[in-house]
């Protein structure tokens, strides 16, 4: 045994200490170097055969190695135990889930309304609210829908048990938000960019209808408004509400209060417009829209030779359910008020 071979051994030990990657491995190294039959015991035993002078020198080196091994092992142990926090109960606590503050849930309808408002706001639309129980006049007659017209069938209307007004006719639960068109125009301020969001009622209840539901009604009245503006605004809505890849298309339709009238379709988000089980040839119906009928402008006190406009009125819940993420399959869940449903939103 000489000093050079010892320093070689010292380096080897150092390298080996670095490889310890678990507490068990550290224990093995401890036994190997410091144990009863360990390397250092063996070296110390060999000291006996050396001269007094060499004994002194080699002994010092062996001591150095011993210290080195001891501090190396302690360091490795500490490093490993900070990585493995589960070693004590105190550390275990830190692995538990945090205690959440109680955060409640806004109803899906509220969330839908907010998203819709946010889309239209930058386009200069102002949110308004008009009576939910209103005169038949505002809900129908002023909208160019006389009492005898078959178009009234489209709206399963609830009537209020109240005296009939000779001018305004009966009281109704508004079956749509279009009464807001007339009431907004009668305020007398032009131009108009209205977003009327209100509760409506219709005599129907099934998988896609609630007797109480919400509609949002857009109305623009200004000089020079044409179909391309209607397309532009609704296209903007579709892309911002459903996603930039979605397209809209207009199909001819008939509503008494608009002329021309359209049914607006949006390209299917599932198949991307190719056609699938959930859509009609790549398209889904969003709702109706059209250019405000001159008779409606007149009923609202607006001169149709000076102004024109467009309008649309769509179901809030329906439009929101068509977002592919919600997966709400039955609109009646929305008024079912089961907290296990509501907590998911």
């Amino acid at each position: 045994m000489d000093l050079s071979s010892l320093s070689l051994a010292k380096n080897e030990i150092k390298e080996e200490l670095k490889t310890a990657d678990s507490l068990a491995a550290i224990e093995n190294l401890r036994v190997k170097f410091l144990g009863k039959n360990g390397v250092l015991k063996r070296l110390t035993a060999e000291l006996a055969s050396l001269s007094v002078e060499d004994k002194k020198q080699v002994g010092l080196v062996i001591n150095e190695i011993k210290q080195e091994v001891e501090t190396g092992l302690a360091l490795a142990t500490e490093q490993l135990s900070t990585q493995h926090k589960a070693d004590s109960l105190e550390d275990f606590v830190k692995t538990l889930p945090g205690k959440k503050p109680e955060i409640g849930h806004l109803h899906v309808t509220t969330q839908a309304i907010r998203e819709i408002v946010e889309v239209f706001k930058p386009l200069g639309f102002t949110r308004v609210r008009h009576p939910e129980i209103d005169w038949e006049y505002y809900a129908f007659e002023a909208l160019n829908i006389p009492a005898t017209h078959p178009a009234r069938d489209e709206w399963e209307t609830f009537f209020i048990d109240a005296p009939v007004d000779p001018k305004m006719s009966r009281q109704v639960i508004t079956p749509h938000t279009s009464n807001g068109q007339i009431r907004e125009m009668l305020k007398g301020d032009l131009p108009i960019r209205m977003l009327n969001i209100s509760r409506c009622g219709r005599r129907q209840s099934d998988i896609s209808h609630n007797p109480t539901f919400f509609q949002f009604e857009g109305l623009v009245v200004d000089k020079g408004i044409n179909i391309s503006h209607l397309k532009g605004v609704l296209n903007y809505f579709a892309k911002n509400f459903y996603g930039p890849d979605r397209q809209i298309r207009l199909r001819p339709y008939d509503f008494r209060f608009t002329e021309p009238s359209f049914e607006i379709d949006i390209s299917c988000g599932i198949c991307g417009g190719v056609g699938c089980k959930l859509c009609k040839g790549g398209w889904l119906e969003l709702g109706g829209a059209g250019m405000v009928h001159p008779n409606v402008l007149i009923a609202g006190g607006v001169d149709p030779t000076q102004y024109s406009g467009f309008a649309f009125g769509w179901g809030v819940e329906r439009v929101y359910m068509m977002k592919s993420g919600t997966r709400i399959d039955d609109i009646r869940h929305l008024l079912g008020n089961d907290l296990k449903f509501l907590e998911q939103f």
Partner: peptide, 8 residues
């Protein structure tokens, strides 16, 4: 929790 009930 926000709740919506029917008006009727």
């Amino acid at each position: 929790f926000e709740i919506y009930t029917t008006s009727m």
